[in-house]
C-alpha cells in the first residue's frame, strides 16, 4: 500500500493521546488505592488531559487531509453497523468529549463523592469519567486497529496482532509522554510512569516483532493464476491497459525498493524500542524532563517510521493486475 502521511499522523497522534489519558487515569487509580502519593496539584490531571486533547485533535485534523471531501465528513457516522471506520468516527469525538470533561472535573475539583466502594472509599466524578474514558479509549484502539485488521485479503493486516500492536504502541508512546510530563510537574510519580512506560515499550516490542515474524512467513493466497483464472505456473503481464499509470498504480504501491523498506524496518525497530528505553532509564535516574521528552520525541519519530512500514508492507492482491506497463 502507499503510506499516506495523513493516516500515519492520524493513527500515531491518536495513539499518543489515548496512551497519555490511560497513563493519567492509571496514576489516579493507583493514588485512589493509596499505592501512589495523591496529586493534590489539580493542574496535573487537567493539564495532562489538555495535552492528550491536543494530540487527539491534531490526529483528527490530520484525518481530514485524507478525505477528498472533508466537508462531507459528518456523513461518515452513518454506517456504524458495518464499518469500523464509521465506528471510529463516532468513538473518537465521544472519547475526546470525555477526556475534556475529565480534565474539567479535575480543574474545578468535582470531588463530591457520588458513590462509595465496599471498603468505604468515596468515588467522585473524576473517577467515573475516567472509567468511561478508559472504555472509550480501548474502543477507539479496537476501531482503529480493526479498520486495517478487518480487510481479509490484506494478509499482513488481517491478524489480531494489528489491534494488539495499536494498543501497545499507542499505550507505550502515551506513557513515555506521561513520564516526561510527570518529571516536569510531579517529580514524585515520574518513576512510576517510567516503569510502566518501559514495560509497555517492551510489550510493544514483543507484539511488533511477533507481527513481523508472522508477516515474513505469509504465503499470498492470490496469484496471477487465480487473478485471471488461468491454470499455468508461468503467466507474465504484458500490458495493464494504461501507459501512464492510474489510481491503481499510485494508491497500492509504496514506490520504494525492498532495500529501503528493510532500512525503515531497522530504523523503527531502533527508534521505537531500545533508544527510548535507554533514554527513559537515563532520564528517570537523572530526574531530567529533557531526557524523558527526548525519549518521547525519538519514539514518536520511530512510530512514524513504524506506521509507514506498516502500510508499505501490506501487499494488496490488486497489484497482481498491475505488474507491467507495456
Amino acid at each position: 500500500m502507499h503510506p499516506a502521511f495523513s493516516v500515519i499522523f492520524l493513527t500515531t497522534l491518536l495513539g499518543v493521546g489515548q496512551g497519555l489519558f490511560l497513563a493519567l487515569y492509571t496514576g489516579q487509580l493507583y493514588a485512589f488505592f493509596d499505592l501512589l502519593p495523591a496529586q493534590g496539584n489539580r493542574s496535573f490531571y487537567a493539564a495532562g488531559s489538555a495535552i492528550a486533547l491536543i494530540f487527539l485533535a491534531a490526529g483528527l485534523v490530520a484525518s481530514f487531509f485524507h478525505l477528498g471531501h472533508p466537508e462531507r465528513a459528518w456523513r461518515s457516522a452513518a454506517k456504524w453497523r458495518t464499518s469500523w471506520l464509521s465506528r471510529e468516527v463516532i468513538v473518537l469525538p465521544a472519547f475526546m468529549g470525555v477526556v475534556f470533561l475529565y480534565g474539567v472535573a479535575h480543574w474545578f475539583g468535582w470531588h463530591v463523592p457520588l458513590l462509595s466502594l465496599p471498603g468505604g472509599r468515596p468515588v467522585d466524578a473524576t473517577l467515573i469519567l475516567g472509567a468511561i474514558g478508559t472504555l472509550l479509549c480501548f474502543a477507539l484502539f479496537v476501531c482503529t486497529g480493526m479498520i486495517y485488521a478487518c480487510l481479509r485479503f490484506l494478509q499482513e493486516w488481517h491478524t489480531p496482532l494489528t489491534v494488539v500492536n495499536y494498543i501497545l504502541l499507542g499505550g507505550a508512546s502515551g506513557f513515555v509522554l506521561a513520564t516526561a510530563f510527570a518529571a516536569a510537574v510531579a517529580q514524585e510519580i515520574a518513576g512510576f510512569y517510567a516503569g510502566w512506560a518501559a514495560i509497555l515499550t517492551a510489550l510493544a516490542f514483543a507484539g511488533r516483532v511477533a507481527s513481523l515474524l508472522r508477516n515474513a512467513r505469509l504465503k499470498p493466497k492470490s496469484s496471477l493464476s487465480t487473478a485471471i483464472g488461468i491454470k499455468h505456473p508461468r503467466i507474465a503481464q504484458k500490458a495493464q491497459g494504461a501507459m501512464g499509470g492510474s489510481f491503481n498504480t499510485r494508491e497500492f504501491f509504496h514506490g520504494r525498493t525492498a532495500f529501503f523498506l528493510r532500512q525503515v524496518k531497522w530504523l523503527f525497530l531502533a527508534l521505537v524500542f531500545p533508544l527510548p528505553l535507554m533514554l527513559i532509564a537515563a532520564g528517570a535516574m537523572a530526574g531530567s524532563p529533557a531526557l524523558l521528552l527526548a525519549a518521547f520525541g525519538v519514539q514518536y519519530l520511530g512510530l512514524i517510521a513504524e506506521r509507514w512500514f506498516f502500510f508499505a508492507q501490506a501487499n494488496h492482491p490488486q497489484n497482481l493486475y498491475y505488474q507491467a506497463v507495456s
Binding site: M1, H66, L67, G68, H69, P70, R72, A73, R75, S76, S83, L85, I147, L151, F153, L154, S222, F247, N248, E251, F252, H316, P317, Q318, N319, Y321, Y322
Partner: peptide
C-alpha cells in the same frame, strides 16, 4: 467523502 477505504477493500482493484 473520498476516503478510498472501499478501494482498499476491493481485491480486484
Amino acid at each position: 467523502i473520498g476516503c478510498k477505504y472501499c478501494s482498499w477493500a476491493c481485491p480486484y482493484g
